[in-house]
Design a protein around this nucleic acid. Structure first.
Lengths: 267, 267
DNA sequence: ACCTGTGAACCCCTTCACAGCG
DNA sequence: CGCTGTGAAGGGGTTCACAGGT
């Protein structure tokens, strides 16, 4: 039972953080058992998906009863590798980089911001959110010193690829890119990208499409499936004081009123 | 040719902004024709996918030659509804909200920040990035006044749902949520969520998994840093009536060195 | 009875391979 | 010939429905 480790599907991996956050909330309410149906509702997915997802982790539920919240939380954390800390370095201390540095949600969830890096002489040496900003050239030293595991790219698009190369060269093989650029990394590295402008463009696609059908309404199309509410999910750190929020990942959409096409969702 | 409008798949819609950005760069280099293969390489996808995606927009390529950059750019912009401006209101002016307000990438791409909103008395009335911060109660007026089409939620998780409800009530049916919470909107609205902590957790999953199979790894193959670009891939879409589904965001990952399991990607 | 775990159907997307047309 | 456009094959992921425990 040490490593059941069936190949957990990527789609499932992307939902585990949502279950994790949901279960944390449930636990805070002193509830110690939860059914797939209830968890599904809270996480904004359907019950069959919850059961299938959790089954990849092993059989941690009890038939006729549900899942023990504390145990499930532990298993998901273990699966996500959150039983240990994964220090993060943020490269590019502009508006976004600074906001991320101030975001308390990282440290709370096992991803403490260990270092800030930039190349701008005006920024290097400054202090942002309690961290001194180092020069990009110091990356190798910082990585070794703090055991940095993840690199966050918050630079302009033009420098994103170079930064990624430098991160990989320094041994940082997990990269989260916020720059609006296509970035390539070698096979041994992992990369995820978040593009804010892209999200807005996708939203405008659906908005426009839905508006089209609104005027003359075309009958005969598929009925709209839809409905409901959904939810994103994710890990929630403490946001109280700051209000930053950001995070990435979950997305969900819905179709529009007059039209029949369901809108996509992402997460 | 007015409305070929085949049902463009959600996965394709999510890639259109990438093609758009890529083509803009190509156009800046004075290149006026591009093949699917070249576009694919630059966008980080494969050629067959590019051709299939573009075919949903209509037959805008020339066999034996490729696609005319300017024309394709126009068609994609039109499809994404970017021929007009979609004003944005940012709710929650904390670190992230302020960073987004300062982010020039929105206005440049047809999504000008038209208003900033918060509920904190200490913030209302202040000026951030040239915009005065209004109280959330003024939302209906601001929406009508500026023709706001999209709402960005950058508040703490606890208030995200209420903000979403208020946005919808005010007529804003396209919402981009950065709060780490499951948010539900009625069928006529569209919602996409981005969760930063979630992305980091997904990265740590793959990092951990890959490390399991690794032992000595690490010859420095620095020379190969980069190189290929093999593909990005997209995430799986999911949307059906119920729930959330995931898909968006761009993410791309690669398999890890020692193991054989490929890592997921999403973009 | 109730709820989990899961095989199988279904659906969407990706990839292949080639027909079709400059 | 070159490159696009696309039918068909292949792979995942979601959903269904029910078998299997409690």
């Amino acid at each position: 039972m040490d490593r059941p480790r069936r190949h957990i599907p990527a789609a499932t991996v992307a939902r585990l953080p949502v279950y994790l956050r949901t279960l944390s909330e449930v636990q805070a309410d002193q509830i110690d058992t939860i059914s797939s149906e209830r968890l599904a509702e809270m996480a904004g997915v359907n019950a069959a998906k919850v059961r299938k997802d959790l089954s990849f982790l092993g059989s941690y539920g009890t038939r006729g009863v549900g899942y023990e919240v504390a145990y499930l939380l532990f298993q998901i954390r273990r699966e996500l590798g959150l039983t240990q800390s994964w220090p993060v370095v943020i490269v590019g201390i502009g508006n976004l980089g600074a906001a991320l540095a101030n975001y308390g949600g990282f440290g709370d969830r096992g991803h403490p911001v260990a270092a800030l890096v930039d190349t701008d002489p005006a920024k290097v040496g400054a202090t942002v959110s309690g961290h001194r900003v180092h020069h990009l050239d110091e990356l190798p030293v910082l990585v070794a010193e703090h055991g940095i595991a993840i690199g966050v790219i918050a630079t302009p698009a033009e420098t994103a690829q170079e930064v990624a190369d430098r991160l990989v060269a320094a041994g940082v093989t997990s990269i989260l890119n916020f720059a609006p650029a296509v970035v390539s990394v070698p096979p041994e590295a992992s990369l995820r990208s978040v593009d804010l402008a892209l999200e807005l463009q996708v939203l405008s696609f659906y908005r426009q499409r839905d508006l089209v059908g609104e005027v003359g309404a075309e009958p005969g199309d598929r009925s709209s499936v839809e409905g409901h509410s959904a939810g994103i999910a994710d890990a929630a750190p403490n946001w109280q004081d700051d209000a930053v929020s950001g995070m990435l990942g979950a997305v969900r959409e819905r179709p529009s009123a007059g039209s029949k096409e369901p809108t996509p969702t992402c997460r």
